[in-house]
Amino acid sequence: MLDTHGRKFVQPIIHKTATHLLRMGLTANQVTIMAFFTGISSGIWFFYNQPILAVIFLWLSGYLDAVDGSMARMTKPSPWGTVMDVTFDRLVEISVILGIAFLYPELQWALLLLSVSIIFSITIFLTVGAVSEKQGMKSFYYQAGVAERTEGFIFLTLMMLVEPFRLEITLIFVAVEIFTGIQRMLEARKLLKDVN
């Protein structure tokens, strides 16, 4: 939701950074890889009891992820860039989930539910993107929802920083992901005109 409706407020800064990195000779795919390594370090920082660094690296990776998309649109988006982008996004989330799970084994059952709910929501997102004839700013149809990347980062941040309520925050995140998956499924039915 925030990605869809709030992007216009931060896009000028993202565009400026994208322009600067292109002038430096970097490609969108190179920045995607930078965002990936920055992001997966987040879970490692958390596991080593450095939650502030974990959050900083998580959000820096998210910023670079937004910048690489702008860079791609300013040059030429590539299908390989899209594959890397979507795959690396999930691996960054997995890194944080694993960092929390290894440090707090008592939360593993809730983190497993979270992982399942993310798989459910992203499966619908990717399937609709693959079968839809519509195309958005990305190289596939982007199906908005209550939980997009920014909301996920907010929940992951709270899970890392708000220790007394880590379980409750995780379960709320699970509920929001399930709601988003159902929301996307219902929208897909209308979008694809499949009323059987």
Rank of each mutant, 00 (worst) to 15 (best):
I97M: 10
V131S: 05
T32H: 03
L21I: 04
E133A: 10
A110F: 07
G99R: 09
R23F: 11
V86Q: 14
I100R: 04
A18E: 06
V83Y: 13
A144R: 13
G129F: 01
I56E: 03
Y104L: 10
S115H: 09
L113A: 14
E133C: 00
L98R: 10
A144V: 02
F120C: 03
K16Y: 14
P79T: 03
H20L: 13
I94Q: 02
S42A: 15
F47R: 12
L53R: 08
L58Q: 09
Y141S: 01
F46D: 02
M74I: 08
S42N: 05
T27I: 06
L98F: 14
M71D: 13
E93I: 14
S117T: 07
A101H: 09
G99S: 10
F88D: 04
G136M: 04
G69Q: 10
I40Y: 07
P77D: 10
F37C: 04
Y104D: 03
R73Y: 08
Y48P: 00
S42M: 03
P51N: 12
G43P: 01
S117Y: 07
I52A: 11
L58S: 05
S117P: 05
L114R: 11
N29Q: 13
F88C: 05
S139G: 15
L107C: 04
S132M: 00
L126I: 11
L126P: 01
Q143M: 15
F140H: 14
T38H: 10
W80C: 02
L114Q: 10
G43S: 02
A130H: 08
V86C: 05
F88Y: 13
V96N: 04
K134P: 00
T82M: 04
M74S: 13
V92Q: 11
P77Q: 02
Q135T: 14
D89V: 00
Q135M: 12
F36L: 12
M34N: 04
S95K: 03
W45K: 01
G39Q: 06
I100K: 06
V146D: 07
N49M: 05
I97D: 06
L113R: 10
G25H: 08
S95M: 03
S139R: 10
E106F: 09
I118E: 08
S121C: 11
F57K: 00
I33K: 02
Q50P: 04
W109Y: 12
G69L: 03
V96P: 01
V83P: 01
A110L: 05
T150R: 12
L22N: 10
T87I: 08
